[in-house]
Nucleic acid binder design. Structure first.
Ligand code: SF4
Length: 420
RNA sequence: GGCGGC
DNA sequence: GCCGCCAACATA
């Protein structure tokens, strides 16, 4: 703990021990979320600007250079709130959390004095290898101190190719050491987030409840950017991959879908940008053709709300990828899963012909199916149906949809350019 | 559909 | 019988 209070930055390596007062915790969450909000809205900020944006937020003291009681208190607050929010975000938007934290670290580290920085590195047992004299003269490294790193430690700088590289090593001047540290922090956070997520069910209820009372700051442009209107569902079904087209058809025909289909198809439509309101409308109009509205509300509506993350744990579920769909078991009588895997070859080939897949492609698809290359089979199906090539194998239904839509655009372009 | 609560 | 909660993860 002493080491934590010694610097304005930290790698947050150790789980904090000892419980804080609940109101104290709430306060900490609040302050850190305010920090995230700023980082999200202002892409670039100087230290001074950030400080003034923070206003009365105690975290602003981590941008101070001096060291007093107030600053130490802020460091403590920083450490604990980092962990609470890590737990909170581990389930929701880990990437967003990561981005905020890395930027926050970088800003603070850059703001520290030279001595503090080197001391921080030393105290955290991070080994620096200074460039030797011969290396310096060979690679013409003048001026200040240069350090030697393995490529894997500073991949970003390696990519930029700004500094001398030699046999798997790169040499970096002292004032660029942040890049090394942020990458270290990034790796640590990655595994820590995974760990937190696994532990989430067993974290104490008090903490969970507390977290839930806060509205976590969400990144821009996730589901918000995309939108899919129910009214043009019909005309877009042609762009759906076979697995989803089949869900659509069954829903139309039977006015019902079983549980796993609801998961698969519901998340897919959500992935396309269908709003919760419209989704509920869709399921309701279909389902109530065979059941009372009251029954729908009681049996099914909660499910879809949960799917959209508006109730319960408020998890923002993403659409299933092909691998998940392929792994499902599909007992007879169920319609979910991937046609290229779960359908009988004869059933599949009938369907393929119905969709005007040429004989050659039908054979190819069935061959791929036999060799368990289901996604490749799907890709072939795509090429046959859309009449255009793909450079990658399909690995996600939503991607299939996007590519199918843009393939139409391609063809329109072709037609247009043909005309003049 | 599964789990859980009354 | 009433009710609540869960699943996912590509992605430039
Ligand atoms: S490969 Fe993927 S997208 Fe294609 S049908 Fe199967 S699950 Fe659907």
């Amino acid at each position: 703990m002493d080491r934590i209070l010694q610097f304005n930055v930290s790698l947050y390596s150790y789980t904090p021990q000892g419980a804080e007062q609940l109101y104290k915790q709430a306060e900490m969450i609040y302050y850190r979320l305010r920090l995230y909000q700023i980082l999200k809205t202002k892409e670039t900020l100087s230290v001074d600007e950030l400080k003034s944006e923070l206003g009365d937020n105690p975290l602003k003291h981590l941008l101070d250079v001096e060291d007093n009681a107030e600053v130490r208190l802020a460091r403590h607050l920083d450490y604990l709130s980092h962990w609470t929010l890590k737990i909170a975000y581990s389930n929701q938007q880990p990437m967003f959390f990561m981005k905020c934290e890395l930027r926050w670290f970088k800003t603070r580290f850059n703001n520290m004095s030279h001595d503090q920085r080197m001391e921080f590195i030393k105290k955290n047992n991070l080994n620096l290898t200074p460039a030797t004299d011969t290396e310096k003269s060979n690679l013409k490294l003048w001026g200040q101190n240069w350090y030697k790193f393995n490529f894997t430690e500073v991949t970003l700088l390696v990519k930029l190719r700004l500094y001398p590289m030699y046999k798997g090593f790169i040499f970096i001047p002292e004032h660029k050491l942040v890049f090394w540290l942020t990458e270290k922090l990034q790796k640590q956070l990655q595994s820590s987030l995974v760990h937190c997520r696994k532990m989430l069910p067993s974290t104490c209820d008090q903490l969970n409840m507390l977290i839930n009372t806060f509205e976590l700051v969400q990144p821009y442009s996730d589901t918000t950017s995309r939108s899919f209107k129910l009214c043009d569902l019909k005309k877009n079904v042609e762009h759906f991959p076979l697995c989803m087209k089949f869900q659509y058809e069954n829903l139309e025909k039977k006015h019902h879908l079983k549980h796993f289909s609801r998961v698969q198809y519901g998340l897919f439509l959500k992935g396309l940008g269908l709003s919760l309101e419209e989704a509920l409308k869709m399921w309701k109009t279909e389902f109530t053709k065979k059941m009372s509205e009251r029954c729908f509300q009681k049996e099914y509506s909660y499910f879809f709300k949960h799917q959209y993350g508006t109730v319960g744990s408020k998890i923002k579920y993403k659409a299933q990828c092909c691998d998940t769909i392929l792994e499902q078991s599909v007992p007879s009588g169920f319609v979910h899963g991937c046609p290229f895997k779960h359908w009988d070859a004869s059933v599949l080939s009938v369907r393929l012909r119905e969709d005007d897949v040429c004989d050659e492609d039908v054979r190819k698809i069935l061959g791929l199916k036999q060799r368990e290359q289901y996604r490749a089979a799907c890709t072939t199906y795509f090429q046959s149906v859309c009449g255009c090539k793909l450079d990658d194998v399909i690995d996600h239904p939503v991607k299939y949809y996007d590519k199918s839509c843009s393939s139409i655009v391609d063809i329109e372009d072709l037609v247009l350019s043909d005309e003049d």
